[in-house]
Write a protein that binds this DNA or RNA. Structure first.
Length: 217
DNA sequence: GACCAGGCACATC
DNA sequence: GATGTGCATGGT
């Protein structure tokens, strides 16, 4: 059993299932993935509530909504002008390529779809992979700031290495299992929030057993 | 008041 | 290819 598998088992035992992604529909996952870029989830929840209250949490509704109205509704999520444009770009792509249907998008070849998502304005590797894994249930591992930080703290890979380098590590070490990837990434985020911020709390972290003994602070 | 949060596009070297 | 900057709200 490799180290990444053991870290997963350890986190799952300690923290338990995270039940990601918190959303009612695949489309809502995608919207949330764009809005949570460099933003705490609590603020995204407010924005999603605003959209729902305005009757706008669907591809058609958001496609027809004026961009300035969209921006004002998602204001609590921050970067609202930028994100309104990014949401519009994704929805235009969803409309033109899949007639507004996440289900039709799901039937696209995964590798090809990833390339297409990456070509949409405002969708980078993490957002694309979040949509693939959490909205479309494809076995693609999502790398985020917490994942990089935790692996870097454990000297498994330097934090400044590229997104793809981190992702390759997981794809090589683990079975391509959607449920496993779902849970593992969510556990990294949960563990990162609690134990691995700028001021780490390694003494309380379930992963401390994987640290060199000189670094357990 | 500083720092941070489930990134990305764009400019510049 | 690597590095720097703008985007913005809300919590600690």
């Amino acid at each position: 059993m490799n180290r990444l598998s053991m870290m997963y088992e350890t986190l799952f035992e300690a923290i338990g299932p995270q039940h990601w992604w918190p959303a009612d529909t695949a489309f809502e996952v995608a919207v949330g993935a764009i809005m949570t870029q460099n933003t705490s989830w609590i603020n995204v929840e407010r924005a999603i509530r605003n959209l729902k209250a305005a009757g706008g949490m669907g591809p058609r509704e958001l496609h027809e909504m004026p961009i300035h109205k969209l921006a004002s509704l998602i204001r609590p999520a921050g970067y609202f002008n930028v994100k309104a444009r990014r949401l519009k770009s994704f929805i235009a792509f969803l409309m033109s390529s899949y007639r507004g249907s996440m289900e039709r998008m799901k039937h696209e070849d995964t590798g090809l779809l990833r390339d297409k998502l990456l070509s949409v304005h405002g969708i980078g590797p993490e957002t694309a992979d979040s949509i693939l894994l959490y909205a479309l249930e494809k076995p693609i591992f999502v790398i985020d700031a917490y994942t990089k930080r935790i692996l870097s703290r454990h000297h498994i890979m330097d934090q400044r290495k590229a997104y793809g380098d981190f992702q390759a590590l997981f794809h090589a070490a683990l079975e391509k299992d959607t449920q496993l990837f779902n849970e593992y990434h969510a556990l990294f985020v949960a563990a990162g929030k609690t134990y691995c911020k700028r001021k780490p709390r390694c003494e309380a972290c379930p992963l401390k057993m994987f640290l060199p003994s000189t670094e357990k602070r």
